[in-house]
Nucleic acid binder design. Sequence first.
DNA 1: AAGTGTGAACTTTTTCACAGCT
DNA 2: AGCTGTGAAAAAGTTCACACTT
Lengths: 207, 207
Amino acid sequence: MKIKNTPENTLERLIIYLKVLEALEKKNVNFISSEDLAKSCGVNSAQLRKDLSFVGSLGTKGVGYSIKSLKYSLKNFLGRAQEWNLILGGISPLGIFLLQDKTLQKEGFYFLAAFDTKEENIGKIYNGISVYSLDQLSYVVNAIKVDIGVIATEEEPEIFLNAFVEQGVKAILNLSKVPFFVKNSEIKIENFSFSMALTKLSYFLKE
Amino acid sequence: MKIKNTPENTLERLIIYLKVLEALEKKNVNFISSEDLAKSCGVNSAQLRKDLSFVGSLGTKGVGYSIKSLKYSLKNFLGRAQEWNLILGGISPLGIFLLQDKTLQKEGFYFLAAFDTKEENIGKIYNGISVYSLDQLSYVVNAIKVDIGVIATEEEPEIFLNAFVEQGVKAILNLSKVPFFVKNSEIKIENFSFSMALTKLSYFLKE
DNA sequence: AAGTGTGAACTTTTTCACAGCT
DNA sequence: AGCTGTGAAAAAGTTCACACTT
């Protein structure tokens, strides 16, 4: 199986399943049926089983799923069995928050360097992570394997986008207000802002 | 027209269109074709026109769209022509960041109160916003119109979820690691975490 | 008996293509 | 001539329902 590649919606749900499984594991649940897990994930059981079929044959007929092993398979499938190196673009309050956040490290996402365009920020250190001038990006990218670039500034975010893309960063989390898109399918951009998330809610409330 | 209600994917794209229009407006662009706007939004022009048709007939045949008036229509449709009152659950670094963020206010999202369960945080004030004990939630909800509850704590986020739902908060932005779902279709929950966003990228990179 | 995995049926979403307005 | 708005066609995603395994 696994001929077709995973649709975006399925991918998003797989991530939800993983998160919910991690929470269940902490409550010492060992086995679960697609019916019960689906309920906790806001989907129906057929959807959940179909989604999981993109990952493999992970359950036991008549029994259900081992939480430990399903979690393991999902982490593997989602690229979360390994660690990833991140760089930050933009010393904003949000950027500083991310550098100091320990929970991302626990999940295998490590900020190794930060970049800014403002002279006064260069050389600062947050949680052991140094802030470099954007000019120094190419040196850093050559010295360490950079997997993901996180853009956390409202002022000229496209400067960081362009620099990251130019230096071969393949995955970008854009947290600025304005979403970006590139034609190059070698590059993946995730756009998120609190404003966009809240707008989904304001639409719902307006009804 | 406007018989069917807007699909989730369309809604998400409409929000993107709005954000991109706001950026274009700043660059003093006045008119744009569906082709050009679509390009900036990472979709094709048929998709864009179909999406906009859920909002209304907003363009001029042979000409394109007025950015000012399209933006106006979208803001209206998305519930962003009005202001919304927010409360925060959880005095975490992320929570404090949100209370202090001025850009949300500029977009019409106002935090009016924050709640925490830890004694030492009660009574603190961030950016003019007071932190109350969660016990006081019902008083606050009775005194002011609360539109959106934002949960920003990793420790027992469900305590805030339950309290918010019980007090009739209809829209919730859950920023904790574990996504929540409720059966009640009167209530809308948006789940977001940096970990989930980064996992989408790790999946892409793993390929 | 219970619950997975999956083709087939159904539903929704996307893309095409063009009539119709400016 | 140019570009929107939209039915109709095509594609994709979801749900059903049941054969099959434990």
